[in-house]
Design a protein around this nucleic acid. Structure first.
Lengths: 342, 342
DNA sequence: TTGTAAGCGTTATCAT
DNA sequence: ATGATAACGCTTACAA
């Protein structure tokens, strides 16, 4: 026969209600929808709660209501600077809300992502933010069968699971190449690392632009599945020069690679932008500070995170955004590394 | 009178137990301590759970057991590379465990930290990882009165709340200065941004070393509360040169500043390391790739995160580490930027 | 090793 | 606008 437990000394809703002279459910309503109470009771519950230092028990709430106030966030990497900006935006937006974030790292694996998705959804999150559009078919099915808002970030695509916010990586790459072409560069190389879906789309944009200009040459593309780094930028650039010594410009799939190319040029005494132009991607802070300053494609990562979070919150609260597809765009920031003197 | 609710279609423990022909509590035990069951029941519960696709309800578990399987993690910044490495270590370590992470950003504010601490502890986390040792007195009291394991990270100190893992920032800075002195540099400047407690301790180490060598000069120190950046490194360096034109070396409180100094030197055609030595802090990846390669103090951030997480887990499971204070040390990585040719 | 009964703190449902 | 009652799904405490 089960005996009495030693109750923890936490203040419960019941005790608040007692002190306020109302029923527990009225006190409960106060915290979820104060408007529903008469002014008198509202004030009494409020002061009772304050007096007792009441803190709601989220586990009990989740159990009783069959839902949580947790937003799941899946990103492919912690190391990449791009995601730290994104996260900052997401956390900033949720900070003032009652939602908390459950963050997980897919490590660029869509199988891992699927696993984490199942894990998250089993706990009935209030919303979900996932990176990109290349989920497994199973992941898509799972996501479609869920009734919480889902925002895909980092890219845009025609067929979001629910909502999507980002920009076109292909267009952004194409714009970078267009800029280089306008500056008179012709033998434009491409350096890419990791080769995740977004880098592959940048590559596609590069290829499209080069083909449109009848300048495509597969020897100008150097890629690796290895994770990106500044050092790797130098290595890939060396490979590029070995394959195509007449290269006169490099478009790097990210800024770390671009910095590596800059250093490698310094090592080899290659003049920038006279002999070699450099263009990066993301426009991290250091690009504007390098010598010479480095051209890059600016992306709005913080805003992306912030807006994604806002879209989730708005949807939960019944104010679903009119536009489920949000294009945040990009800007080619032209700097010394790719602008020929007149 | 309350009517029956429409029960969600989730599989409950009770149903697993029914299918397995055991009582709910036996099924419950299977998931928490399989060893406690006889082989027969163990097998039957396991297959019943698999057959039904049972997923435990964490809210119910938390409510019944009065504890969660959530580890709270408080870090001061998402932007700083240092913390991304740390987080990767923490997440990697918890991945294979049943614990999940609740992450929050204190934005370098100890008041914010105290607020988050209260928020976290109200939900009874299984453990806590907090950054540094400079909590508010209230925070310390709160933490001391909590019965979950707490690991402080990034630094070491004599009086941890519970456990602590990190290294001495003062010693690390001192070692950097000792290296510069050994190379014959005398007018060694200090550049610091943000000036959070750890940067202040690096400054203290710098001061101690300079005073010990009778070389201290307050004009050699340039600091700012602004958040760090590569660009800021250049600016601070310019300020330093304006105050002390005869500076022959700079110790930067982090690598971003060091990179900014490198660029500023390139801009001004200052020869490194002949006219000016540069030493950074943290040894981010790019330091080894720069031209010239940049000396830095290597710190073990990933290991710090990983070990901190492990210490939390071990303690929860009853295997508290023998040493509550773990010094992970540091290494001065001497590179071209501070090593004079023979 | 297994089971019984009670209870964790909240909210859904229906009624007033 | 407020309340009575019964869940929500699991684990603790004890007994066998």
């Amino acid at each position: 026969m089960g005996r009495k437990r030693t109750r923890p000394d936490n203040i419960r809703l019941t005790e608040v209600a007692e002190l306020a002279g109302v029923s527990p459910i009225t006190a409960s309503r106060f915290f979820r929808n104060p408007e529903a109470l008469s002014i008198g009771k509202r004030v009494r519950v409020e002061s009772a709660a304050k007096e007792l230092g009441y803190v709601p028990n989220l586990a009990a709430r989740a159990l009783a209501s069959q839902r949580t106030e947790v937003i799941g966030v899946l990103i492919p990497s912690f190391t990449n600077n791009v995601f730290s900006d994104l996260l900052r935006g997401i956390y900033d937006a949720f900070e003032s809300s009652r939602y908390s974030i459950q963050l997980a790292n897919t490590r660029y694996s869509i199988l891992e992502e699927e696993k984490l998705l199942r894990l998250f959804l089993a706990q009935k999150p209030a919303g979900l933010i996932v990176t990109g559009i290349d989920q497994t078919p199973e992941s898509r099915i799972i996501m479609q069968s869920v009734d919480c808002p889902i925002v895909q970030i980092m890219e845009i695509g025609p067929d979001p699971v629910d909502m999507i916010i980002g920009f076109s990586h292909a267009d952004a790459a194409q714009a970078a190449i267009t800029h280089l072409l306008a500056q008179g560069y012709r033998r434009i190389g491409f350096l890419g690392a990791r080769m995740d879906p977004r880098v592959q789309r940048r590559l596609a944009g590069y290829q499209a632009a080069m083909k449109a200009a009848s300048l495509f040459d597969s020897r100008l593309m150097v890629t690796t599945p290895l994770p990106t780094s500044v050092t790797l930028g130098g290595t890939l650039f060396a490979d590029l020069l070995a394959k195509a010594p007449d290269t006169d410009a490099v478009f790097c799939a990210n800024d770390d690679l671009a910095l590596g190319v800059l250093f490698e040029c310094q090592r080899r005494h290659i003049a920038i932008p006279k002999q070699m132009a450099i263009v990066g991607f993301n426009d991290l802070e250091f690009m504007a500070s390098a010598v010479p300053t480095l051209t890059s494609v600016r992306t709005n990562r913080y805003e992306m995170g912030r807006n994604a979070a806002t879209m989730v919150i708005e949807t939960i609260e019944g104010r679903r955004p009119e536009q489920p597809i949000v294009d945040l765009g990009f800007t080619v920031i032209e700097r010394q590394s790719s602008v020929r003197e007149p």
